[in-house]
């Protein structure tokens, strides 16, 4: 292999086996100190000050927090965020789990094709997709309304629409109530495939012998799903839902492009992340923006703890 005659420069920089690992892992820790930890601490400091980035900074104590917690717009944005979070997280995980369960069964062929297709939306840019949905959800000429009007010709569908007083063409991006459904729909469309892949990976770790044993004992598909698959998948569900909490509570790109930075009609599409962005960078209120980031972070921690309570434990070890 290597002879010993490459002296000079390379010998000078030759790493000791004891020191080497610290050198190798140091880039992360150095970058984290500069671009991660320092901004977080600085953000905490800013949240007690009032500053527009140019003028004099002044200490205001807890005023920023008091202002945010009594700010109607902030709570509106929290409500919007939570509604969109619920409207997208539940269908995302239900569809993803169902698709993964079907794709993991031995009945289905073309698994690779289905998996690759479902995952496609995740890789495409949120901005690009939001622009497509902007047209697709258009009131007069959008594809969705055209499809629904066509469906309405069927009597049962018409009856359904009438009972729920759902008038066509619907203003998907104009009516406050529908805006949130539209955003949630877009997010669901983008992330179901990602969750499907996570669940599929989880299902692959469940030994086939368990399913075979269940079949020998005469268990139905539903029993297999609720008694074997779900309990064993608990850690994966926990991981997936945690990612959904962190991602969806910080939802920014999709609503930002779909309804614009001001949040659309009645600010119905203004998520907390968008409000933070507007407070910090549009209105240049760095202090209030930082305080808002900390409040949002606390919400994320609370939801994560609830999630932990619901889904922790389980898995192969507990069988």
């Amino acid at each position: 292999m290597k002879s010993n005659n490459n002296s000079g420069i390379s010998d000078k920089f030759r790493l000791n086996k004891k020191v080497a690992p610290y050198v190798f892992i140091s880039p992360f820790f150095i970058l984290f100190l500069i671009f991660g930890l320092f901004p977080i601490l600085y953000s905490f400091f800013l949240s007690f000050n009032s500053w527009d980035g140019i003028g004099q900074m002044s200490f205001v104590g807890l005023d920023n927090y008091a202002y945010i917690l009594t700010d109607g717009w902030f709570w509106d944005s929290v409500q919007t965020t939570v509604i969109i979070f619920v409207l997208t997280t539940i269908p995302q995980h239900v569809f993803a789990l169902t698709l993964a369960f079907i794709l993991n069964s031995s009945y289905v062929k073309f698994k690779d094709f289905f998996r690759t297709s479902y995952f496609l939306p995740y890789i495409t840019s949120a901005v690009a997709i939001a622009l497509i949905f902007d047209v697709l959800l258009g009131t007069r000429s959008g594809l969705l309304n055209a499809f629904l009007i066509w469906m309405q010709q069927l009597p049962p569908i018409e009856f359904l629409f009438q009972t729920f007083q759902f008038d066509l063409p619907a203003r998907w991006l104009g009516e406050p109530r529908l805006i949130r459904f539209s955003i949630a729909g877009l997010v669901t469309w983008r992330f179901t495939g990602w969750n499907m892949l996570i669940y599929f990976a989880g299902l692959q770790t469940i030994p086939r012998s368990l399913y075979e044993a269940a079949r020998v004992d005469g268990a139905s598909i539903r029993q297999v799903f609720t008694k074997i698959t779900l309990p064993l998948l608990k850690p994966v569900i926990f991981f997936g839902v945690t990612m959904s909490i962190i991602g969806n509570l910080q939802l920014f790109q999709e609503p930002f492009v779909l309804v614009g930075g001001a949040g659309g009609t009645g600010r119905a599409g203004m998520t907390t992340a968008m409000y933070l962005f507007r407070t910090g960078f549009h209105w240049r209120q760095f202090g209030e923006g930082s305080a808002m980031a900390y409040v949002l972070c606390i919400f994320i921690i609370i939801l994560s703890l609830v999630n932990k309570k619901l889904f922790s434990g389980g898995g192969l070890n507990e069988l």
């Binding site: 984290f32 901004p39 600085y42 910080q250 930082s290 980031a293 949002l296």
Partner: peptide, 27 residues
Amino acid sequence: FKNKLFFSMLATMMIPGLLSIIPWFIM
């Protein structure tokens, strides 16, 4: 400290990115 460093690194993945966006911009 290998394990401690590894898990503290993993823990930083849970920090919401929005928490640092304003100071990040100032920096």
